[in-house]
Design a protein around this nucleic acid. Structure first.
Lengths: 121, 121
DNA sequence: CTGTATCCAGTTAGATACTG
DNA sequence: CAGTATCTAACTGGATACAG
């Protein structure tokens, strides 16, 4: 296999999976559910910027991928509890590491952005 | 601080940063550049599904965030070499871990998807 | 070789209103 | 409480043509 035809080790399926699990809201939802199970509106309050529609879509996608489980509480009115699934639990350390990386490096990134924006003007 | 007002530990700035660094093509581009510097078309060949437009946009974004550096080679016609920046290097272990997680867990995820899709029909 | 520019179809996200 | 439905504005991505 020569260099000119060398292809990535990441197939489309892996890109799709990581895209569904690392997207805008999923990281934060999973992080929250790793702490403890949460109700729908509890998650909304914990992530104030997410809309109901986007949170619903995020939770469905995570459920479909086996990352979270959904528990219907038969009260009136009904409640729904979301909790981390075993498969989602395998992501916990990775998510923690990503959030810590972001917190640690954001200042450096900001300086890089300022340099870039100043140079291209 | 009571539970009803508790908010996430991830602010909008962190979500934006992770979004720019973990997006569809960035992971694979960074992974490739961690191995060694690459030319533009070399990256295109390594990631056959990416269009020129998207690869350009991805590289600009990564450059702006201090993740990659851009080196213009004054030949005719000109060449451009991209290489990982020190800040991008701090992501390498995380990226490796994500790719490995994806490779290890994809089969389980597929089974979860099949179950979900069968149940909701 | 490494881009930029343009057009355009398809997806996505917010706002709002409504339901079991 | 936990959604679904609808409309619409904004963004995204592919195709194509062209340029330094």
């Amino acid at each position: 296999m020569d260099e000119t035809t060398e292809v990535g080790r990441l197939g489309a399926e892996h890109r799709e999976l990581l895209g569904q699990v690392l997207d805008k809201w999923s990281l934060e939802v999973l992080d929250r559910l790793c702490e403890r199970p949460r109700r729908f509106n509890e998650l909304r309050r914990a992530i104030p910027e997410v809309t109901q529609k986007s949170l619903t879509a995020t939770l469905r996608r995570l459920e479909r991928n086996g990352m979270v489980e959904r528990d219907i509480v038969s009260t009136r009115p009904v409640g729904v509890e979301y909790r981390i699934a075993p498969l989602g639990k395998t992501l916990q350390d990775l998510i923690d590491a990503l959030l810590q990386w972001s917190a640690a490096r954001l200042p450096e990134v900001q300086r890089a952005r300022d340099r870039f924006d100043a140079a291209e003007g």
